[in-house]
Amino acid sequence: MSDAPETFAFTSENKAKADAVIAKYPEGRQRSAVMPLLDIAQRQSGGWLPMPAIEYVADYLDMPAIRVLEVATFYTMYNLKPIGKHFVQVCTNLPCWLNGSDNIMHACHSHLGIKTGETTEDGEFTLVEAECLGACVNAPMMQINDDYYEDLDSDATKQILDDLRAGKQPKTGSQLERYTCEPLGGLTSLTHQEELRAQKVSEKGDN
């Protein structure tokens, strides 16, 4: 966890990304790029937006800082406080909750030793409750940084957290034996898809 930096400026790489985003909009409408630019700034600052970054984006787009701050505070995916290396967002909306998201939450609490909204002392994990992230088919689920982990239970959750702490990349997506959100016991319709996929997988394997 880092303290708020005094200044902020895009790296040359991010600058190129930002300019590419701005170029998508007509001349003089560069303000439309505020959300992607805030995202770029957030990634560069370690997952959160310090005030200098907000002001830098405002400057970059020639708009008032308060307007950028309005956007940054409106959307929940911008963090205004420092977060841990792994940003654990557990979905607690209805489908996940019905499928036991409380257990996932408890597993995180007990395994990480923090409450919702807190960051572990070593700065590795921040735990928050998230609204529906759109993976209800494989509920319960959580998002850690850019990855989804679905079909969770307590043990799987703990395993994922352990792996991350150990620096390993756990399996993303469904933690059960299924391809994305297909039925658990195999396809029930459009079964020829299975063969097509098998083909694809083997082709990939050959490469």
């Binding site: 005030m51 008032p64 800082a65 308060i66 307007r67 701050l69 309005e70 505070t73 409106f74």
Partner: peptide, 19 residues
């Protein structure tokens, strides 16, 4: 002037002047 704005959303919305 562009000093004032509305931060946050929904139940948490707040009117403020910048900083």
């Amino acid at each position: 002037i562009t000093d004032m704005g509305m931060l946050y959303r929904g139940e948490h919305a707040e009117i403020t002047s910048y900083l």
